[in-house]
């Protein structure tokens, strides 16, 4: 089992972290959701903002979150290590979260995984194996940053990755001729009025 929680010692040192004014405005908005004195409740949202700004969460960022929310740093580390959503090591620009749980696996996630691993260079792409993403009806599924790419196979996966490499953003959702989870090749029922 991968040790996702141990304090990573092999990550690059980040001496200083500060929110940019735009992100700081968002942080303040998140804190405003909670009554005064309960600002610590915003910890997950604020950590997420820090990750979005920096790409991953260095210890300096967690310490800054602790300072802003007036929490002991260890309480922030606890939250950040609990959720796999928080990346404690540097990631590529696009994080490929490949679902390998049974439905996706039966539908060929191994081939998708192979394509992703081939593409992973640590700068543009990083790969992570994840458990069920909840999109079984469109298996296999890969989450790339905030979006789901569905109904993939090795070829379509490579197409999506190539598009990202070119700097485009391919359309999220099914990569076959299908609207969301409707039948492939267009509707089969409820065609008329």
């Amino acid at each position: 089992m991968a040790m996702i929680t141990a304090d990573p010692k092999d990550v690059p040192q980040v001496e200083h972290f500060a929110f940019t004014p735009e992100y700081m405005a968002k942080v303040e908005e998140q804190i405003a959701h909670y009554p005064p004195g309960r600002q610590a409740s915003a910890v997950i949202a604020v950590l997420d903002l820090a990750q979005r700004q920096h790409g991953w969460l260095p210890r300096a960022a967690m310490n800054e979150v602790a300072r802003i929310l007036d929490m002991a740093p260890i309480r922030v580390y606890e939250v950040a290590t609990f959720y796999t959503m928080f990346q404690l090591r540097p990631k590529g620009k696009y994080l490929l979260q490949v679902c390998t749980t049974t439905p996706c696996w039966l539908r060929g996630s191994d081939a998708v995984m192979k394509a992703c691993q081939h593409a992973a260079d640590g700068e543009t792409f990083s790969v992570q194996e994840v458990e069920c993403l909840g999109g079984c009806v469109n298996a296999p599924v890969v989450q790339i940053n905030d979006d789901f790419y569905e109904d993939l196979d090795e070829a379509s996966m490579n197409k999506v990755l190539d598009a990202f490499r070119r700097g485009e953003t391919p359309k999220p959702g099914p990569q076959v001729d299908r609207q969301t989870s409707a039948p492939e090749g267009g509707l089969t029922t409820l065609k008329g009025e």
Binding site: M1, M3, I4, T5, A6, D7, R59, A72, P73, I74, R75, Y77, E78, T81, F82
Partner: peptide
């Protein structure tokens, strides 16, 4: 946390990866 008043110990990770640690 409660008696000694030094909030330095915590539990990081979850499930099989849970550890009692000071992290730093």
């Amino acid at each position: 946390t409660e008696v000694a008043g030094v909030e330095q110990l915590g539990a990081t990770g979850r499930g099989e990866s849970m550890e009692v640690t000071t992290y730093v």
